[in-house]
């Protein structure tokens, strides 16, 4: 029973991970990652970590991936960029480096004698056990994570709301920079528009 579940879940996890990396459309990639998360949660259940598995689904699937999909939908087709033209040796090098790290991990892990698996009671992996560890031994880590999350939230708001350059009306520009500035601005915006048009037609031609 366990081995069957493990096999199915791990195959799903690996297949969906490959789909995440290979898909051109980021929306589909994100959905594939969702499948990956679900398979990993199943694997964690096999390791008797119910709380972490449930937290994995709630935190990742319920919050992080929703945010991802939200941004992907916001960005729209501009986010769709394939791997592009790469120098072959660069691709080879990347894959080689990745494989090297994988081999290293496997060697280290297999080389270390793991010994027998500890026997655990029914309380293992329960919310109570984890909660206790979280607010006693790892209180500092817990607090630091909360501070980091808070900072990230502030950063997200700053990035998300700021950034759009303030547009001055022509009168304001006149008062500030004089007559010629308006012309200059008009010229610049026209040039930007041309450039944008060129780039979009170029994109579709490709």
């Amino acid at each position: 029973m366990d081995i069957v579940v493990f096999f199915i879940a791990s195959v799903c996890a690996i297949a969906s991970a490959i789909a995440v990396v290979a898909q051109k459309n980021p929306f589909v990639s994100a959905l594939a990652l969702l499948g990956n998360l679900a398979s990993l949660a199943a694997l964690m259940l096999l390791l008797e970590a119910q709380f972490v598995a449930a937290a994995q689904i709630i935190v990742y699937a319920g919050a992080v991936m929703v945010m991802f999909l939200f941004v992907i939908a916001y960005v729209g087709p501009r986010g769709e960029i394939g791997p592009g033209v790469r120098k072959p040796w660069l691709v080879a090098l990347s894959v080689f480096a990745a494989l090297l790290i994988a081999v290293e991990i496997v060697v280290v892990v297999m080389g270390a004698s793991l010994g027998s698996v500890a026997s655990v009671d029914a309380n293992y992996g329960s919310p109570a056990a984890i909660g206790e560890a979280l607010v006693t031994d790892y209180l500092l880590a817990f607090e630091v994570v909360s501070v980091i999350l808070f900072m990230a939230a502030v950063a997200g708001v700053v990035f998300g709301t700021g950034g759009r350059p303030v547009r001055l009306s022509n009168d304001q520009v006149l008062a500030k920079e004089g007559e010629s500035a308006v012309e200059r601005r008009r010229e610049a915006s026209r040039a930007a528009l041309e450039a944008a048009r060129d780039s979009t037609t170029g994109e579709s031609a490709r």
């Binding site: 990956n36 960005v75 986010g79």
Partner: peptide, 17 residues
Amino acid sequence: LFTIGLTGVLLRRSPLT
């Protein structure tokens, strides 16, 4: 999985991916 993810980080161009 780690390797697959690493390949994606190294090879993909879209910041979302």
